[in-house]
Design a binder for these strands. Sequence first.
DNA 1: ATTGCTATATTTAGTCT
DNA 2: CAGACTAAATATAGCAA
Lengths: 231, 231
Amino acid sequence: MRKLKLSLIANERSRKKTFMKRKKGITKKLHELTTLCGVQACGVIYSPYQSVPEVWPSKEGAHEVAMKFMEMSMATRTKKMMDQDTYYQTKEQVDKLAVENLELQVKRFMFDCLEGKMSEYHYGANDLHDLHRYIDQYINQLTQRMKSLVENGESSSFPPLPIGVADIDPHAVADFAVDVKTAAIGAARDFCAHIPYQNMNMNRNLQEPFQYHTSRNFYGHIQEEVYNNMT
Amino acid sequence: MRKLKLSLIANERSRKKTFMKRKKGITKKLHELTTLCGVQACGVIYSPYQSVPEVWPSKEGAHEVAMKFMEMSMATRTKKMMDQDTYYQTKEQVDKLAVENLELQVKRFMFDCLEGKMSEYHYGANDLHDLHRYIDQYINQLTQRMKSLVENGESSSFPPLPIGVADIDPHAVADFAVDVKTAAIGAARDFCAHIPYQNMNMNRNLQEPFQYHTSRNFYGHIQEEVYNNMT
DNA sequence: ATTGCTATATTTAGTCT
DNA sequence: CAGACTAAATATAGCAA
């Protein structure tokens, strides 16, 4: 085995082979990491060899990652981030927090989109008109929310954040994140409701009775299945 | 080195150590995969050891992945997927395509959200009122789009899809995806515009002159930097 | 708590089938 | 192409500082 030069493999054939082998290797390592250390992880690989980007630990896994997070209330999440070590010490740190906070929101949003789409194929509703009605509804909610946000400047039940982050209105942050997330999930869900599901292979898992385990075993279980299905 | 049993490591201490080591290992392997095979990849790991989920190949990398995709028009994307080998052969295959198609849209959506958020800190606009105005605007666009979709049943310049996928209106699929994506990106972007950026560490890279390379080297470059910064 | 070390386990590039 | 094989390269668990 020659020592690899870390650059694009010239030969098309062996490049693809390497890709396939290494993809499998990374998948395995991801699986081991999550199992051994009890963490959640997810990966996406785009490749010219597959029309659809590959996702780990599968839609179901990603779904669960999203679900787990959603079990925490937004307030809890916010509070948790606020309780960290040396947050209040300097303005710079507070700014950094704000960024991280926002990053978290968006990553969550991202996973929520995935979740909203991946898990709801079996929901009802049957035509474009319903789609329009649902979306309109979400849009109205969003509009109302934005209006009240602007008009009375407060409309949230979340606890106030510590001073210093005040450069951005924390209520606005939280509320807005919730609103956008809600709208997007709703839209995606409704959209998916219009896909006929009788012949969909993807729905098989969803039709089976859904069973909860305790957190860690639950994920381990899911991911193990996913991994086994993959090799 | 004992052979590992694939189960949660009992000892808290060594679990964390293993986590750190393996995380690094996976990162390296991801980097190698993308470099050697010229593909894009991205990973997310949630852990109790870091308050913010870790993302590869970093926000910038994810941003580029999203950008590249957006260079293709939606029409091109749709067409490309339609051109595949044996798509038209059976109804079942067509159904599968519809699902994959939708998956693609949502994954794109996901990355677009990431992109919309991660890269736009330095945009202007200063207060909640602006935020409200922009969002309102996107909402109106979305509403109009939905209305015209329902009323005249067609409003798209995308080529018609092959029969069989007709169970869901392909125009609606494409248009809707575009609309939701637009709304979400816009909202996220406007939202971010309200974050003061003077003290943000994250903005450093964005302030530097932006330079395009040819696709493959560009990504390789980005990811290499990311990787080097990480070890 | 990191860092380095090292004996093994694991991964994989090249090759053959 | 997809598997098996194997020598070599890597990754890493358990220690030690």
